[in-house]
C-alpha cells in the first residue's frame, strides 16, 4: 500500500506549454484566477564578457508546481480548524466545510499551493485527483503532459527511479516541509541564483 504519494517533475523536459495547468483547471472546474498547478517561467542572465568575446549567459527553464502533499504539511499544522488533513496515502486535503477562510495556510505554505476560491470563500488546492487515483488512473496534470515531464506514484518508488533532488531554483528549502516531490533539474538551474534569475510570469501564476 502506498504510504506517501508524490510527484516527479522533469525540468529538463518541460517546455512550458501549461497543458498540466489547463488540464488541472478543466478537471477541477476552477474559477479564473484559481490555479492548483502553475507553470513558473524562470529566466535570468544576459551577456557576459569572456576575454574579448561577449557570450550569452541566459538561464531559462520552467517549473511546474502544485501542492507537494508534504510529509510535514505546515498548512495543516497552522490551520486553526484542522480543515487541512492528510490521508493514509499521504494526500493532503482541504475540508471546505470546516475551513473558516482565514487564509493563514496561504501564508504558511512556501509553495503557494493554497489558493483562495471566491466561490466557496475558502482555500482550495490540489487533491492529487484522488478519485482518479483511487480508480487506478492518473492525476490530470500527469496524464496531460505531452513531454511526460510529470509523473506520480509512491514517493519511495519515485526516489528509486528518479533520485532524490527536491529543490531547484526558485523552490524553497525542502527541509521546511519535506515535500513529496522528486525533480530532475534543468541544466540551467544550478546557475539560476548566481545569474539573478527570477520568475518571469508572475501575472500567470
Amino acid at each position: 500500500m502506498v504510504t506517501q504519494y508524490g510527484f516527479f517533475f522533469d525540468a529538463a523536459a518541460c517546455s512550458g506549454c501549461k497543458a498540466c495547468q489547463m488540464a488541472c483547471k478543466d478537471r477541477n472546474d476552477l474559477e479564473p484566477g484559481v490555479l492548483w498547478r502553475r507553470v513558473y517561467e524562470v529566466a535570468g542572465g544576459g551577456w557576459e564578457k569572456k576575454g574579448e568575446v561577449w557570450v550569452p549567459s541566459v538561464v531559462a527553464y520552467n517549473v511546474s508546481m502544485a501542492c507537494n502533499h508534504c510529509e510535514k504539511p505546515v498548512c495543516g499544522l497552522s490551520c486553526p480548524t484542522k480543515a487541512i488533513w492528510k490521508r493514509e496515502d499521504g494526500i493532503v486535503f482541504v475540508d471546505t466545510d470546516a475551513c473558516i477562510g482565514c487564509r493563514y495556510c496561504e501564508w504558511a505554505c512556501p509553495y503557494t499551493a493554497l489558493r483562495f476560491d471566491a466561490r466557496t470563500n475558502t482555500v482550495s488546492k490540489c487533491d492529487f485527483c484522488f478519485e482518479a487515483i483511487d480508480a487506478g488512473g492518473a492525476p490530470a496534470c500527469v496524464a496531460s503532459c505531452p513531454r511526460r515531464a510529470l509523473d506520480f506514484g509512491d514517493l519511495a518508488e519515485l526516489r528509486k527511479k528518479y533520485g532524490d533532488v527536491r529543490q531547484i531554483f526558485p523552490l524553497p528549502d525542502p527541509s521546511q516541509t519535506e515535500p513529496a516531490l522528486v525533480i530532475k533539474p534543468h541544466r540551467d538551474a544550478a546557475r539560476a541564483a548566481e545569474r539573478a534569475a527570477e520568475v518571469a510570469n508572475w501575472e500567470e501564476v
Binding site: 475551513c99 473558516i100 477562510g101 482565514c102 470563500n121 475558502t122
Partner: peptide, 8 residues
C-alpha cells in the same frame, strides 16, 4: 478577516 464567521 475570516470568510465564514459562523464557523469561527
Amino acid at each position: 478577516h475570516i470568510h465564514h464567521p459562523l464557523r469561527a
